[in-house]
Amino acid sequence: MNFILAGHGNIAVEMKNSIEMIAGKYPNVKAITFELGDGVETLKDKYLKIINQSTEQSFIIITDIFSGSPYNAAAMLAMQLGNIEVISGLSLPLCLALLHLDYSSINFEEAFEQLNDIKSDFIKSFKKISKDIAEEEEF
């Protein structure tokens, strides 16, 4: 499975750098930028350049915001090509979770279900956790 990270500005490039800092290099992860003045067609060209250079045919494009330009360009390609899945919500926990799934034994729909099962692990509140611990200690 190949991954393309995309978002406004340099967020995707920096996300890839963060992934490498934590988990090492992943040659199947690429990142594109979306600069001021770029449009949907420019983004589609950036995606296609990566897709056309790959021998692997399946792609997951992870974008920062649902219905933003990076998402819309990816969705257009997904409709045209069929071998692309697009999800929004680019974050380090999401990327690490996606990278560590075993795609040899599951398809994307199953992978997405697994993500739904663990998505509550992605966002934590210190105050809520502290309150929960304090309540447990009272018993």
Rank of each mutant, 00 (worst) to 15 (best):
Y47M: 11
K131E: 15
A78P: 04
E56F: 01
L77P: 03
S67A: 12
I19A: 01
S67M: 07
S67V: 04
A6F: 05
Y71R: 06
I60S: 03
F108H: 04
D132V: 08
K49P: 05
L43A: 13
V86N: 06
K119I: 08
K124R: 09
S67R: 03
T63G: 00
I11Y: 05
L81M: 15
K49G: 14
N17K: 13
F108I: 02
S105H: 09
I123L: 06
A6N: 07
N116T: 12
A12G: 14
F108Y: 13
I11F: 07
I106Q: 12
F34K: 00
S104C: 04
E113I: 05
S67Q: 11
Y103V: 05
A12L: 00
D38Q: 09
A74P: 02
I32D: 06
M79L: 07
D38M: 09
H100I: 00
I32P: 08
A23D: 14
K124W: 03
N52G: 06
M76E: 14
I51T: 02
I129N: 11
E109F: 01
L81D: 09
E56A: 00
K25C: 09
P70E: 12
Q53D: 15
K16E: 15
D117T: 08
E110T: 08
S91F: 03
L99A: 14
N83C: 10
A23N: 13
H100W: 01
Y47T: 12
K46T: 13
M79R: 10
H100T: 06
F139T: 15
K46P: 11
Y71H: 11
K131G: 10
S67C: 08
K49S: 03
V13L: 10
L101E: 14
E110Q: 05
P27W: 02
M1F: 01
L99S: 12
Y47E: 13
L92Q: 10
K30A: 14
T63Q: 02
I11T: 01
I62H: 03
S69C: 04
E56M: 04
S120M: 07
F122V: 07
P70I: 02
S69Q: 08
I106F: 11
M21K: 12
D45P: 03
G37C: 06
G68W: 00
S54D: 10
A73I: 03
E41V: 10
F59E: 13
K44I: 13
A78T: 06
G24E: 11
L81V: 07
N116S: 13
